[in-house]
Design a protein around this nucleic acid. Structure first.
Lengths: 235, 235
DNA sequence: TGTCAATTAACTTTCGAATCTTATGCTCTT
DNA sequence: AAGAGCATAAGATTCGAAAGTTAATTGACA
């Protein structure tokens, strides 16, 4: 009843997911059942199922008899993730541009319009983009890919994008470098897609992804925020 | 104690997986807990965790409050799976050929040798390839890709291959058409890879995958073996 | 005979105490 | 002091009965 999903474990899954993506659970932090059951007011079983699903999504890792912890971040993994996204997202965008129908076009234009009208930085906290902007941004990119008819490729691309959001969350000073025209990049991307220019759209997307990753790497400390060494302050 | 894995749920997961891939559990068949706990001599909880993981792998599907069932097969899904494999496996093979080291070469040659010396058809049952051949075949392809340094792309490609095995299992008269030189295709693939000719290797792999899929489609009945319409004979 | 509500049956989901595994701290020996 | 062995604690995994949900059956009524 208290859960937000249709089934109890569903609700815990979604809340855990949001807490990880929202940075409330630090990469590397252990996820102990005593804590989890208290925090989410649920049973061991439900928490366990939620965690098992998050492992499949790549947000949590687990080892036999050693429990679960939030997936840690690393430069090496960011590099691999970025390359995988370059290849797969550009492929899926090509297919989307080729096969997307009119409804897809309309949804993409709408998502872009929403994105342009959503404020990038909050007035009180200029270090992170706003939650509203982040979700509009995700919706725009997701909408661009959604024309792809191949469910499997689409799901793969979407999964990679979601994993990448973790890195965005933990790059504290993201979005303040003045020499980047994010809005322009998005506009160009949309234009190419609507003009059905698959090659150009794919190329723009590759640049967009590579540029963002470049930024994260240059901004990040040597070992990104990662609680695996300092598990918890013990009393 | 009775399980084959390190943890109880692990064991059930692996046995269920084998039973699905081995065709002992029919695509579309419902997986009820009363049956499962009897068959695998385990508890509801362990079975549930195993099933949750299989859902992530794409071997099982689930709906809220309606339990689990073996993933059903369809022509449409086979077409999507095949296209995804064409694109992603050829990409990963390119990377593997580019980046694979000497150990990778040695393993690939070894796997190929094993494959050539493993009998294709059993003497008593000429309708399916032997289990030994199937696993040698999987090991050869897996070995070819293993040079890829990008764990994420490699895992994606491997996952797609494994899903495709399901379709092979259910194409009853696979492998009897005389006009195909499987051994030759494998040899050419290995040669191109060892010669570090990424373009040629990728092209050969695409042909190999497409050829196999073509065969499955032409051989399969309109609606492949699928128990979703005829769940179980009820008494 | 066909439709609909109520009842029953079958199954899925949930729970939390019992069991087992791993980690931690302590003591004793070399 | 360093290390091995033991005792204790913390936490992960497992179990199966209770609660909740969906599907099937029955029976009443038009």
């Amino acid at each position: 009843m208290t859960g937000t999903g249709s089934t109890r474990a569903d609700g815990v899954y979604q809340r855990l997911r949001r807490d990880i993506l929202g940075g409330r659970l630090v990469p590397g932090a252990r996820l102990k059942f005593p804590d989890l059951t208290r925090r989410y007011e649920t049973s061991v079983g439900a928490a366990r199922e939620a965690l098992t699903r998050l492992v499949a999504d790549g947000f949590v890792r687990t080892q036999s008899n050693q429990g679960f912890s939030v997936m840690p971040l690393s430069h090496e993994d960011l590099a691999e993730l970025t390359y995988a996204r370059l290849e797969i997202e550009s492929l899926v965008l090509r297919l989307s541009v080729r096969d997307g129908d009119l409804a897809w076009e309309a949804a993409a234009v709408a998502a872009h319009h929403l994105l342009t009208r959503t404020p990038f930085l909050a007035q009180d906290d200029a270090s992170h983009p706003t939650d509203a902007w982040s979700s509009a941004h995700a919706a725009f990119h997701s909408g661009l890919l959604a024309g792809c008819r191949n469910h499997r490729l689409l799901a793969t691309a979407t999964g990679l994008r979601e994993e990448a959001e973790l890195y965005l969350q933990w790059s504290v000073s993201f979005g303040r470098e003045p020499d980047r025209d994010l809005a322009g990049e998005h506009q160009a991307l949309l234009d190419a897609a609507m003009a059905r220019d698959a090659d150009r759209a794919a190329e723009l997307l590759r640049d967009h992804i590579a540029h963002t990753a470049q930024l994260l790497i240059s901004v990040a400390t040597d070992e990104p925020n990662n609680a695996s060494q300092t598990p918890l302050p013990h009393p």
